[in-house]
Amino acid sequence: MPKWFTPAAILCGLMFVASPILIAEVRYESTMGLVQKIFYYHMPSAVMFLLAAVICGVASARYLFGGAPHQDRVAWAAAELTVLFGIITLVTGPLWARKAWGQWWVWDVRLTASLMGWLVAVAYLLVRRYGGPGSDKLAAGLALFGAANVPFVYISVNYWRTIHPATSVVPTLPVDMGTALWFCFTAFLLLFVLLLKMRIYLEEERARVDSLYLSLEG
């Protein structure tokens, strides 16, 4: 692991410890009150979910058309993070919606597209786990669809009539709300980079195990 990993992990841990204190200090939103504070973890995890899907798609495309094994490892690592941050988004969203909208779930464009994107990432992992030989290429094809879904998820709230808040909400936040949000966003981004690095390292070590087995047999 690189030298910066441990200091960055400590910093990330401290940021996650400090974030609830910062969030507790922020004023309540006028219409939703206390439950709106879910936003400070929900939005960053949703962005990481989409970022992971894009990284998975780009790395898969580079693996499909370039054939570099490292890109395949990046794609696999990113797919796992898509599932992780996706489930966080899809659980925290309904917990907020139950209070704000009066319903756990609606088949809204953004919610449905997000669920589809998450299911594509789950399908990627299932194909990699149980697909047998050649599943790397098949999964890479799936990842392209997952990445293609991302712009659709992002713009859906601006183009269709939807109950979900639009993307214009974030730039209009007052300073205290914005500070808490961007602090949490930085913590999530740092965590995302660390987890991605850790997961890619795991795949590299697995590749090393394979080459050691080949050396033993040879």
């Binding site: 659980v91 907020w96 139950r98 209070k99």
Partner: peptide, 17 residues
């Protein structure tokens, strides 16, 4: 609608996951 319970559930879920 129990807002504190929903809020705590959300944060606990994130940290546990």
């Amino acid at each position: 609608l129990p807002a504190p319970r929903l809020l705590i559930a959300a944060y606990v879920f994130v940290l546990v996951a």
